[in-house]
Every structure is written in structure tokens, then in C-alpha cells.
Simulated scan of single mutants.
Amino acid sequence: MPEESIENINFDVLNKRAISQPLVSHIYTADPSAHVFNGKIYIYPSHDVDAGEAFDDLGSHFAMEDYHVISMDSIDSEAVDNGVALHVDDVPWAKEQMWAPDAHEKDGKYYLFFPAKAHDGIFRIGVAISNSPVGPFKAQPEAIKGSFSIDPAVFKDDDGSYYMYFGGLWGGQLQRWRTGEFKAEQPDSPTAFLPKDNEPALLPFVTKMTDDLFEFAEKPRTIEILDEKGNLLLAGDNERRFFEAAWLHKYNGKYYFSYSTGDTHFICYAIGDNPYGPFTYGGRILNPVVGWTSHHSICEVDRKWYLFYHDSSLSKGVTHLRSVKVAEITYREDGSIETLNPYIEK
């Protein structure tokens, strides 16, 4: 839901129309990555705080500095905040902006994957490890070699391979890596180096992880997102093209790559036969929420599928103070996903 319409919203009415309520309300949480470990739900969100930064399209007002892990015994149970799992002060290479994380498990260890701006102002991706899914996590002393941009999401395939998906436009800096090296010119412009509307849209990246999950096992490669004719989506197709918030899940043998369209506020998905893609655009999962951003994860819980997402209804539309929510999603017989409206129509 575009920011300019916020002032016209009656939030008491809107919250009654919402299809779900915030899982926690004592802190602001966003960008939820949800997993089931040992029969319990764990959600790895970013932790929104009001740092006093002015709103801009570089995301400077998203000044998050730590992570909390939220746990639930079941999809209907109370959500529990397990406290600080990792703080930026405990990450040697990171300076600020602990944005959307993800986590995974391997051999009884738990790994937190997170982006942050390094001391040179460039977003990198780091890894931290713990014996517990709720932390505390201990960060590796350096960021992942060859990492860049934001929004890491790690998928474990049926053969035991782990893949990381990542990337984000504008403040996420993906457009600054078009040549393979970071372009530092025009640092205050979120749209410098973007392709023209009639050119193929910028693409997210995927890479297989090493066995210890600390590094990339290969050079990251782009993920092709195609239209119904097999052509790459164009940069001007901003209701379908990738912007940020990569996520991968598997359903009935197919790989579903889902993502946010950013400035048009949709959560969309594309379907493929391989974790590397290509993926063919399939439709929308979630229509716009209150607040500028849209970021999600999809997780199977007790043979049902759920979308974890956020909106800014609790903060009455403050863009950078968001709250994590969850709603069930439905697959049609052909494998397509029914679009959710986050608020019931009047």
C-alpha cells in the first residue's frame, strides 16, 4: 500500500480487517525467515528500531543493529521472543544496518546468515553459528568471500545441498555490481546504474554453499526469471520483476522462487525445475500491505503451507517500524498459488 495513502487510513478499522495480527507487539520485527527445526517453528526477522534517520530511498532509516529469534510451539501458539541473538557490535567486519537475515541447520548446528554494511559502506553477507536455534550466535570474523548485496536466503535441497539466494536493488546495492565490481559513484542515488525500462531487469543471484556453510562453493550466478513466452522480465515491468527478498521452497517436486517487487509492493513467485532456475513467472502471492516494503518467507508446518510477512499496521504506517505476521497459503491443483489480500475488503 503506497506510503502517500497512509494519512487517510483508519488503523483501528484496518487492523480489524487484517487477515492476521502481529506475532509479537513489544518490539518491531520485519523480513521474517521461518523454519521448522525439531518440530518447532523458528522465525528469524530483522529488528526494527527508530534510529532517528530520515526516510530516503537508500533505506538509511532502516538502521537495525541486532537480531532476535521468535519461536512458536505450533502455528497457533504464542510467539516467544528469545532475546538478542546477535548484535552488530559482535561482528568484527560489520559497521551497521543488520538487514533481513535467514538461518538453517546442519548436523546439530545452527547458522545465521545476515547482510550488513561493512566499514567501507558496502553490503556484504556474513555467517554466525550457534548450538541452539535461538542463539546466541557467534559471527565469523570476516564476511563471506565474494559476497555482496542483501537478503540472503538459504535453501536445503533433498540431496542435502545448501544454496544461498540473495540480492536487492536501490539501497541493497545490487545495481552497483553490474560489471562485477562495486561502483561507488553517485553514492546518494538509489537508482544510479539501473538498466533502462526496455532492457532486461537486474537478476538475483544463487550459489551453492561449502560443506561447512561458511563460504560460497562457486561463483554466484544470476537467476533468470522469465515471462510466459520464455523472455527475461524487463526492468520496466516493475509489477513482476525482482527487486529484493529472494526465497526458495519446494512443492510437489517443483522449485518456487518468490520475491518482492519493491516499489510496487507485491510478493510474486516463479516456478522452475532446478534450484538454479530458470524460473517462469507464476503470479502474486500477496497484494500490497501498509508500509513501503514487502518481505516474506514460505514454510510448511504440519502439512500446511504458510506465508510469513510483515506490515506497518501496528506502528500506524511508520515505514521502518514493522510487525511480522503469518497467513496460510493455498495451492491450486495446477500448482499455482492463490493470491492473498492482507486486509479483508469492506
Rank of each mutant, 00 (worst) to 15 (best):
M1D: 04
D197Y: 05
S260V: 01
I337R: 01
L202C: 01
P187D: 09
S189F: 03
K117I: 09
T330Y: 15
P115A: 15
I329K: 04
P278N: 05
M98S: 00
M1G: 05
T29L: 11
E105V: 04
Y163F: 15
I129M: 07
D263I: 11
A184T: 14
S258K: 09
H265N: 14
R178A: 15
F193A: 09
D334L: 05
S25I: 15
D90L: 06
M1W: 05
I344T: 14
E239T: 12
G283I: 05
A94Q: 00
A217S: 13
A192P: 02
D56T: 02
G59M: 00
S60Y: 01
S33C: 15
P278M: 06
F113L: 15
D188V: 04
Y309G: 06
L58N: 04
D159G: 06
G160D: 07
I9W: 01
F182Y: 13
P275R: 12
E239G: 04
H296N: 14
S258H: 14
Q173A: 03
A94N: 00
T207R: 06
G168T: 12
E142F: 11
H310C: 03
P92A: 11
Y343S: 10
A63C: 03
E345M: 13
E218G: 11
V318S: 08
S323E: 10
V80Q: 07
G272Q: 10
K156H: 10
W177G: 11
D159E: 10
G126T: 11
R241N: 14
N252P: 01
S71T: 09
